[in-house]
Design a protein around this nucleic acid. Structure first.
Lengths: 369, 369
DNA sequence: GAACTTTATTCAATCGTTTCAATTAGGCAA
DNA sequence: TTGCCTAATTGAAACGATTGAATAAAGTTC
């Protein structure tokens, strides 16, 4: 049964060795340009290279990593790849890792907790030298996180502060973002602002809300509790859109007593605009709307969405730097300090917000974008 | 220097063996629930399991795959992860592979050819048992594809027909899609239709255009050549939006002599709508717009976009099934037939298209969505 | 109690690479 | 001829897990 080998197996060093007439070790040395290869005759080198090329030889990454005890790979676990927010972070990560000769290994938890844990385990088993977790919701996979620590694999979390559990974290300053959003609306003259809070289980929700309240407190702006509502828990990132529509309808049903809506994120905000439109209200003429994140659809919507931008590229890059530092520290047998990086978000003023022209009874004035 | 080991290395089977007082092989047998484990005393099993758990042992996937000669992994190489089009396909792939106990390994070429080739090579080196390529542009990485063949790794391409090169392919029926799009506009009474073709290097461009022409031919609709324009080559998927704006401006500069625009894809179509708006034209009142793909922003834009939907989930799933079949065939030492699957797209009628109310001089009537 | 089975455990080879140490062949000086 | 140096090549031991064959101990049968 030696045909079996022909089919299943890849071309390996031994095949190249046999075909070229040299020993496996010589072939290895040549193909890796190892230090010893300077002692190998030029003609031999050339010959071995040619044979390897013609056979279509590619080294087995498993065997190599096993022997070298290095995988040159960083596991990247995302809570949901379909969220545009994730993708930008990933790009930042890719950029930095690539420059360091490391390869990111993406795993998508698709908003399922069980998958999330599975993937953490897999990253560990595949001997990722470091792990980056992009998490939007609270997670508590204690046992597996403990195992990761036991195996001395550095972890960095993006999107929430886990320093309390000794894990380096990179995130946007959500509090500052909430502050900025309300400030923008306030400066445009809006005094009656409806707020749609993020769902309970998302970690960003609370700090954004705190930032909003902080600004309100500083300027003595009263936030009418009946204009505050909250997104329900979400199955996937896109359900925020539908929820935005529904919540807006609910707000309007109580009688429109606001001139602006501050939405938890961009997708919600887009739903809000749609909801307002369905009731014959125009944005920003009848009501201003502001989002959060600055994902792609925000920029191309009509009207384009005023929002709070997170520099996701930078966040991703920082996360990557952070693991790499921890890795280096480990090599130098030092302790990597637990770090936290927060990035200030910026206001992107577009068409969906405008100066408040409300008279005691609204639904009148229009402002061209 | 034995501290080195403490730091760098993971907990391994030998560690569990020492700690439990049994031999490595016994531990392996127990932890894998191997057939032989029925001969292992229940107390031993329990003890070994406990020790492994407390040490945080996780098997080394490299060593295991090396020994078993199976990676249980399928390499998935995308031309650009940030394209929402890709993500849906990926979900389809994930769904199916997961059900088969295989793990997709994503690699993102980010629209760079050099990266694309690098990733193909990596998939090979990491001993992916199969490879799925999601490619929108023409690619010709001959040498690496040859190597993949030499190593007997099944490949499936999504997004273009590569059967001519003996590679199974899964794609949408672009011709039918183009046909549907023009048919929809025609049935709404549009006779003067501007068309924005896809960029030269994208493979979808040509067949969509052929479908459009086929419908025009069948209905004797004359497509005015001065209303046909083409997207330039694109750096990233999102540049289509800006190009859509620019091309629309150019079309309008010649004098608006059309009542509808058929755009190559959704992002272009969104740009078109924005371009029309900037010139004071409303959609669909003054001009209908139709896109292609049905990506997320299409559904949430205002007006929402009429488009041709590809069932990307299904496409992804089929691609995954296709590699798995080829894999099975390989095991049975049969030849896997080269397959092609084309999926018919469907029309999703939304708000951006409406009945043509054009009088000899347009820019008058309005239709509410 | 010898021969045999069953039960519980371990040995040792293997997967494909890498790398250090060892070997060979040839040239050259003594 | 012997010994020694250099240049070119190879042997063999890892890396960590798996697994068929082997062993040891205990139990059963005649």
């Amino acid at each position: 049964m030696e045909m079996k080998k022909d089919i299943r197996n890849h071309v390996k060093l031994l095949d190249v060795a046999k075909a070229s007439g040299f020993a496996v070790s010589t072939v290895s040395i040549v193909l890796n340009d190892a230090p010893l290869s300077q002692h190998v005759a030029a003609s031999t080198r050339k010959h071995i290279r040619e044979v390897a090329l013609s056979l279509g030889y590619h080294p087995d990454a498993f065997a190599r990593s096993l022997r070298r005890n290095r995988s040159r790979m960083i596991g990247v676990i995302t809570y949901d790849l379909s969220d545009p927010f994730c993708i930008s972070i990933i790009h930042g990560i890719e950029d930095h890792l690539q420059s360091q000769g490391y390869l990111p290994q993406f795993m998508d938890a698709r908003s399922q907790r069980s998958l999330f844990e599975t993937h953490l385990r897999m990253a560990l088993e595949r001997r990722a030298e470091g792990i980056i977790v992009i998490a939007s919701w609270v997670f508590d996979e204690n046992s597996i996180l403990e195992d990761i620590k036991k195996n001395h694999v550095p972890v960095v979390v993006v999107g929430r502060d886990m320093t309390a559990r000794n894990i380096s974290s990179v995130l946007v300053d959500n509090d500052a973002g909430g502050y900025l959003a309300l400030q923008h609306l306030h400066q445009l003259g809006h005094r009656k602002v409806a707020v749609i809070l993020g769902p309970e289980e998302m970690f960003d929700s609370q700090p954004r809300w705190e930032g909003i309240q902080r600004y309100a407190g500083e300027t003595k702006l009263r936030l009418n509790p009946s204009l505050i509502c909250q997104l329900p828990s979400q199955v996937n990132p896109y359900s925020a859109y539908d929820n935005g529509i529904t919540l807006t309808e609910a707000l309007l049903a109580k009688g429109k007593d606001f001139s602006a809506i501050l939405a938890f994120d961009d997708l919600t905000a887009l739903g809000v605009i749609r909801g307002l439109n369905q009731s014959g209200l125009s944005v920003p003429g009848d009501c201003s709307v502001i989002g959060f994140d600055d994902v792609f659809p925000a920029a191309v919507s009509l009207p384009s969405l005023t929002t709070i931008r997170q520099s996701m590229l930078q966040i991703g890059e920082t996360a990557a730097k952070c693991v790499m530092e921890a890795l280096k520290a480990k090599e130098d047998r030092k302790d990597a300090p637990v770090q936290i990086h927060t990035f200030p978000p910026t206001l992107i003023a577009r068409e969906s917000t405008a100066i408040n022209c409300d008279k005691p009874r609204p639904k009148s004035a229009r402002t061209k974008p």
